[in-house]
Amino acid sequence: MTIKILNAIIAVVGGVLGAIVLYWLLNKLAELLPGRWEDRVKPYLFLLPAVAAISLYLIYPAIQTLIYSFANKNSTAFVGFDNYTSLLKSQNFQNTLFNTLLWIIIVPAAVIVVGLLIATLADRLGPRGEKLSKTLIFLPMAIGAVSAGAIWKFVYAVRPPGQNQIGLFNGIFTGLGGDPVNWLQLSTLRFNSLLLMVMLLWMQAGFAMVLLSAAIKGVPTETLEAARLDGAAEGTIFFRIVVPQIRTTLITVFITVLIGVLKTFDIVYVMTNGRSKTNVIAVDFFNQLFTNRNNGNAAAIVVMLLIIMIPVLVFQVRQFRAEEAAR
């Protein structure tokens, strides 16, 4: 145990010192070059370590994964589109895709609605009440998905009829006279998936609230006053005046939550591991890789995930360029 701590300290000190020495050397190297060349080469030397890390950890593996997706389970022979066709034909994977689609449709919208509701309400409280309520709602962001799993297991837990219920939902439900329900196995209308989505909503609503609340505070008071003088109702003011002015932030929150949703792994893995029709694409990837030991299928699944993300990626890049042009 002390060895581990020592190793960590060595890693940090060595890593930081190593980086400093590396940049110093790169800089010295550039200064050896004749005048003009020094300025030409130096930017690339400053970028080199970061770009190397990104290439090694993201770009090269992404290309490699694309290649694996056309190969068999041990990546020893090419099989063409077999991984894709067999996945898309399988009932299980169709089910997984359908669930992922539900997550995409429901969660970002729900997070925005709840975040906006809380932001609007908290804005009407006094400073102390506002700060307290916002902190309480923001806090689940710091709690990781696995800890959230431990927390919510106690909400959804079930005991056989006749025994005392220890889960909050069943405690309330049986208290009202119902029979205990195994919530996480209740796949009718994908109710169990909805319950997992509630967990993500619980974790992310605070994030939406913080950004949206800041944006709402930025709406000029004059426009609100003018509308009030004209006799507009509060609802009209909100939808016709506030919402258009915080549009950019709404889009940002939507995109960010959407990206988070597509990568959702831990919640589903911890709570159900995809059983009872709750599987999503990121969990399926993990199980193909480790339970089925099938590199080909796993790679094909991530490539499909990547394809689903292309519209988001294009949007993101365009948004960035528009921002840069406005600078």
């Binding site: 950890y57 993201l58 593996p61 992404a62 490699q64 994964t65 694996y68 597509l262 990568k263 990121a282 990837f285 890789l289 590199n295 796993a298 790679a299 991530v302 490539v303 995930l305 990547l306 993300m309 990626l313």
Partner: peptide
């Protein structure tokens, strides 16, 4: 880009 692309 989801970091899962890099894992295998």
């Amino acid at each position: 880009v989801p970091t899962q692309v890099a894992l295998v």
